[in-house]
Design a binder for these strands. Structure first.
Lengths: 190, 190, 190, 190
DNA sequence: TATGAATGAGGCTTCATTCAT
DNA sequence: AATGAATGAAGCCTCATTCAT
């Protein structure tokens, strides 16, 4: 009736939407995209199946929304506001941040791996991924070039390898993987 | 005119079984387990749907058979006949072998990653994986201990991290990943 | 416009469930459990295949539900609220009721016979049957004992034999079997 | 080559055929027609699937052959060579024979009930049954007419009822049913 | 907005039957 | 005659999606 109602509605919608996303991330991460049914998602989010379709037009759209959400969160780790050149402390900071993030957002990272290693999904999101990951990688390469590396591109790939490996191993067995020690071991190298 | 002998039947079965496995690996690697239908598998293997069930009692059993096959192949990389202690040259040899294997068996490794990062699958195969990977890891840790490392367990985890990373990155983008250079970079470290 | 209330949903479900059961009884009685397909059942009940599974988790569960329903109905014939001893008039009453019930519920009885003579089904429902039929039989035996029969157990078995025979013969050929005359013939004996 | 070979073949075929029939009766009686697969039948009969089709053109033909076999055996109980009128001793004899037969051919009778109570099967065999059962029933009715019964047809139906009941009850629970006592109880009545 | 009953395409699986050897 | 691999129609069941209320 009154304008406030409209705003309230929008806030409610946003809250609801977030709750659905959150529930879906958890379900997908635990059981995989295909194994989770819309019914389960609805129950988990505390709403009805029909209402879910009021927020996402299909299961696949829901997946896309999640992946973009996650991508966004991840890319923030790269300190996109950085203006000047990358320095050693930035790398250290990045690693620290990554480790912290991994620990506190395990489910999202699990989901990230579970989803992105699916060939079908990779096709769907190939462009988004490139769009996001492009610029920062260039900065890293520049960093190694400035440092006088003979093969800055290889050095960058090596760093990517390390990071992928850390994520993969930690996610595979969070209880036993010595995340902090490995982080220190890496920092030591640079 | 005469009926086939038992041996003839056995040979036929073995050949057929292998062909089915091969076709299934390719399909699963390309599209993921859930996205591939039995019909597609049958077409790809050049047989009827029904025949597939003459060789594997269910789609899940087929998956298990594949994964065990792959696990076996992979574990052979670890030189399981090794009797004495691990030496530097063994590590080098292992990395060389891994790289060669990655290049020539890309599909299997894709499948390995695509499948194993699915939470549901991990549960199914958790025991098999541990059974296979347990012993070699112990030898690697011993190697680092003998070398005088302060934290041989961390060093072993670090090596695992590197290897996981290499596999992950190469599989994600085989065209552009500098596999050989990264391998040399790793050998250099030890 | 307003969503249905919980009670409305419950009523809907109950009505639908009954209709499905009714349709299934008819189909199973006419063609036998195995010969009836889910598709046929759905068409007969005027619903989609999928909906059937919203009410019964499997074809076998549907069968169980039917059989329990029928068992319940049948056991009510035995006047389970009977508190005192059985008397002659109770037997007469039982026979009269049985005959009436047979005539008006022919399909259910056909189903009963068609289903219960299937070995596989007998195994499924063995316990339920015993649980239901136990107590009343005891009362019949007591009746014959009180009447001074030398072998009340045999007399009870004889009565059971007669009843089974009546049901069997009537179901086999309802048009020509002289149900009422046979009933009178039996009453005459006691 | 020589004529003896041909005869031997025929004998072999007949033996084989009997073995298949026997195996099929057992399987069908235990699990029901639909639940038994051709594969199981073949294994049970000690031959291959393919060979089975050398003896019976389809599963349904096999069923028909069994049912006719059983019908033939049963009808022999009615002393079909009887030329003169039925007498009391014939009835007694019939009951005695029936009881003996029930005891020693339990499986066949189980099969008989399991199969004949299936509506679909009844349609298939309706004519055969009538062709077989017609004449003897007439003789029984004549017997009761000669005995001065007011309603010989009802009396005949009553006897049929008793017999059906005996068969049904004995088959349902051969361990506990007092077959001999019931038989005596019936003889007593006439 | 919110519910869950209802749909139906499509998946997995079974099994009677055929056929090459 | 004898085998069992091979076929494919048909069955059971799931689940993303729609829709009446």
């Amino acid at each position: 009736m009154c304008p406030r109602t409209k705003i309230q509605f929008e806030v409610m919608r946003e809250v609801r939407r977030s709750r659905i996303l959150e529930a879906a991330i958890e379900c997908f991460a635990n059981s995989g995209y295909h194994s989770v049914t819309i019914s389960e998602l609805a129950v988990h989010a505390g709403i009805s199946k029909g209402l879910l379709y009021n927020y996402f037009t299909s299961k696949e759209e829901l997946l896309k929304a999640i992946l973009q959400e996650i991508l966004k969160l991840m890319m923030q780790l790269f300190d996109p506001d950085q203006t000047g050149d990358l320095e050693r402390k930035d790398l250290v900071h990045y690693l620290e941040t990554l480790v912290t993030h991994l620990k506190s957002n395990l489910i999202q990272w699990k989901m990230y791996m579970a989803i992105f290693s699916q060939p079908a999904v990779q096709l769907i999101l190939a462009e988004e991924i490139k769009a996001y990951s492009g610029p920062p990688l260039g900065m890293v390469e520049a960093y190694f070039r400035n440092k006088g590396c003979l093969r800055p591109d290889v050095e960058m790939a090596f760093l990517s390898t390390l990071i992928s490996g850390v994520i993969f191993e930690y996610i595979s067995d969070p209880e036993n993987y010595p995340l902090d020690q490995i982080k220190d071991r890496i920092i030591q190298m640079y």
